[in-house]
Design a protein around this nucleic acid. Sequence first.
DNA 1: CCAAACCCTCTAGTATAATGGAAGGTAACC
DNA 2: GGTTACCTTCCATTATACTAGAGGGTTTGG
Lengths: 145, 145
Amino acid sequence: MINIGILSRQADISAKTIRYYESVGLMPEPARGGNGYRQYTEMDLETLRFIRRARDLGFSVKEVGDLMKLWHDRNRASADVRAIALNHIDEIEQRISKLKSIRRTLINLTERCHGDDRPDCPILDDLVKGESAETRWLRDSPRKG
Amino acid sequence: MINIGILSRQADISAKTIRYYESVGLMPEPARGGNGYRQYTEMDLETLRFIRRARDLGFSVKEVGDLMKLWHDRNRASADVRAIALNHIDEIEQRISKLKSIRRTLINLTERCHGDDRPDCPILDDLVKGESAETRWLRDSPRKG
DNA sequence: CCAAACCCTCTAGTATAATGGAAGGTAACC
DNA sequence: GGTTACCTTCCATTATACTAGAGGGTTTGG
């Protein structure tokens, strides 16, 4: 069992923020010592690191909460949890492909404007337009009957 | 040339928010008609869609601004822009792999807890932990300097 | 013993990212 | 010419996610 300060250093999240996460239900209420100090376990550290990872990726506290629920509620109604998890996985995969799309936009930028001072670089005209190069196939190929 | 309402509908972003983006420098100041109405072009629509994509992915307004700069400043100092773009691409790739890590966490959840009511499901013990290699945690950190 | 470094709760303030509403001008249609 | 749907600016408010500070108790070490 460790105090909040140690946990704070281990997860690189301030003690204030840890208490805040507790107040909004992201972190569970920990056991208390006789002195009233919060007593954390190794699992709390992992939880906090999970939260940190997800927050860093731009998931809102509420969204992280949803992911956390999946994670903590895994002991009961596993079938439901599994379904919800698959849903979240799907959303994350969409997110990944959108990121890939933005990456592709930027890569095209660097490839088209390859270090000289050419005045035009028609990225907008054919790349960002229509969502991205990655989705241009939507226009050009049928893909679905 | 289109008015803000049309642009708003095309990009699925409220007129209020478009003006807000203008006020914080994300959207360029558009031309004005004789009536003072904002006059937008096709490119503004693309710009707005780029902003929307990036914001949806959790990039802050400032970060989106950085991406926008790359995009709009491509006409001058292409070499520098290229370097900065490569940097951003790198960051985005890191982001993608972090997302993949979270996805892996969730996939493992569904695989381990495969729909029955088994009480334990040792995801924490070997999965989320694996992300951060420093699990030499409880070896009592120094508490005083 | 006492100071420094912890910890506690509670309230308030900040930054970000919008969103709402007032007050009024403009454009389109009947 | 009136009504409705636009548009304008400016100021206020909301929601989210912390962050700071007051005021006070606890633990550790010289």
